[in-house]
């Protein structure tokens, strides 16, 4: 799975990250923290500069889990026959 290593690193370092970077966007490549940023766009630009156009993780450091909703899509109702 793409970004698996980065997500594992984020999970393992979560306590440290939340203590220092709460509500910021962290940039991670492999098992390296490359920086923290105010916006995801800033983090993306920094990622391109430091890593190039390769997969890297940008994640907002927040308490709790962030879950998005797209019920029509996930229930297959975008194109339902009526």
């Amino acid at each position: 799975m793409e970004l698996e290593k980065e997500l594992e690193f984020f999970k393992s370092q979560y306590k440290e990250l939340i203590a220092h970077y709460e509500n910021q966007f962290v940039l991670i490549e492999g098992s390296r923290l490359l920086g923290s940023f105010t916006t995801d766009s800033e983090a993306y630009e920094a990622g391109l500069e430091q890593v190039g156009n390769k997969p890297f993780l940008i994640k907002k450091v927040i308490k709790g889990k962030d879950i998005d909703q797209a019920p029509a899509l996930m229930l297959g109702l975008l194109n339902a026959d009526l």
């Binding site: 995801d40 909703q69 797209a70």
Partner: peptide, 23 residues
């Protein structure tokens, strides 16, 4: 040629699933 920059969970009445995020 845009690479993913994260993963999110989509939650619905059918359950949750993981999806990549892209700029």
């Amino acid at each position: 040629g845009v690479n993913s920059i994260g993963v999110t969970t989509l939650g619905t009445a059918k359950g949750r699933s993981q999806h990549y995020l892209y700029p």
